Amino acid sequence: MKFYLLVALFFFASDLFADQTETIIKLKTETGILEGSLMIPTGNSPVPVALIIAGSGPTDRDGNNPAMKNNSLKMLAEALSENGIATLRYDKRGIGKSQQAGVNESELRFDHYISDAKDWVALLNKDERFSGITIIGHSEGSLIGMVAAQESCVKNFISIAGPGLSADKVILEQIESQSPQVLTRVLPIIERLRQGKMVNDVNPQLYALFRPSVQPYMISWFKYDPTEEIAKLKMLVLTIQGLNDIQVSEAQAKMLAKANPHAQLKLVDDMNHIFKQSGTSRADNLASYNQPDLPINPVLTHVITDFVMKNDK
Results as ranks from 00 to 15, higher is better:
Cys153His: 12
Pro48Lys: 09
Gly196Ser: 06
Leu76Pro: 07
Ile85Asp: 04
Ser213Val: 12
Ala259Arg: 00
Arg93Tyr: 08
Glu228Ser: 14
Arg109Ile: 04
Thr280Ser: 11
Lys232Phe: 04
Asn203Ser: 12
Phe275Ala: 10
Asp119Pro: 12
Leu193Lys: 00
Ile240Pro: 06
Leu38Phe: 13
Leu9Asn: 15
Lys2His: 04
Gln99Trp: 03
Glu35Gln: 10
Ala283Asn: 11
Val154Ala: 02
Glu128Cys: 05
Val186Lys: 13
Ala77Arg: 02
Met218Arg: 00
Val202Tyr: 02
Asn203Thr: 01
Ser37Phe: 02
Asp116Phe: 08
Asp293Glu: 13
Lys28Trp: 00
Tyr224Thr: 12
Gln205Ser: 15
Trp221Met: 13
Pro180Gly: 13
Gln264Asp: 09
Gln215Lys: 04
Ile160Asp: 07
Val7Gln: 09
Asp60Leu: 09
Val303Asp: 09
Ile274Gln: 03
Gly102Ile: 06
Ala257His: 12
Gly94Ala: 07
Ala117Thr: 15
Ile160Trp: 05
Ala77Lys: 02
Leu88Ile: 04
Lys232Met: 08
Glu140Gln: 15
Lys234Ile: 04
Ala287His: 07
Asp284His: 12
Ala50Val: 08
Asn64Asp: 11
Arg211His: 04
Thr31Val: 11
Ala77Glu: 00
Pro188Gly: 01
Glu30Gly: 12
Met218Tyr: 01
Ser142Glu: 14
Asp269Phe: 11
Asn311Val: 09
Glu107Lys: 12
Ala117Ser: 14
Gly43Asn: 06
Glu30Phe: 06
Asn44Cys: 03
Lys28Gln: 06
Trp221Val: 10
Leu267Tyr: 08
Asp62Phe: 15
Gln178Ile: 07
Pro163Cys: 07
Ala208Thr: 13
Pro204Cys: 07
Leu256Pro: 05
Ile136Val: 04
Phe130Thr: 06
Gln100Val: 14
Ile33Leu: 10
Ser152Thr: 11
Met68Tyr: 14
Val303Ala: 10
Ala54Asp: 05
Asp60Ser: 10
Gln264Ala: 10
Leu294Ile: 05
Met1Tyr: 06
Glu105Asp: 10
Ser159Met: 13
Met255Pro: 08
His138Cys: 07
Ile85Phe: 03
Ser166Glu: 14
Lys28Gly: 01
Val170Leu: 15
Lys69Trp: 00
Leu5Trp: 09
Ala86Gln: 00
Ser72Gly: 08
Val303Cys: 07
Gln215Cys: 03
Lys197Asp: 00
Lys97Ser: 08
Gly36Thr: 06
Glu173Cys: 13
Phe210Glu: 03
Pro261Met: 07
Asn125Ser: 11
Leu27Asn: 12
Glu228Phe: 12
Gly141Val: 02
Gln252Arg: 03
Asp111Phe: 02
Val308Lys: 06
Thr21Asp: 00
Phe10Thr: 15
Ala77Asn: 01
Gly145His: 11
Asp293Asn: 14
Ile304Cys: 01
Asn311Gly: 10
Ile95Leu: 09
Trp221Asn: 14
Arg185Pro: 00
Thr305His: 05
Ala18Lys: 10
Pro66Ser: 03
Leu123Phe: 08
Leu206Val: 01
Met1Ser: 09
Lys254Arg: 15
Tyr224Gln: 14
Thr134Leu: 09
Leu9Arg: 14
Arg129Cys: 01
Gln241Asn: 06
Ile53Ser: 05
Ile158Asp: 13
Leu294Val: 04
Ala251Val: 11
Leu73Ile: 12
Lys2Cys: 00
Leu172Glu: 12
Asp119Glu: 15
Ser56Tyr: 08
Gly141Arg: 10
Ile190His: 09
Val268Phe: 03
Asn244Met: 03
His112Leu: 10
Ile144Pro: 11
His302Pro: 02
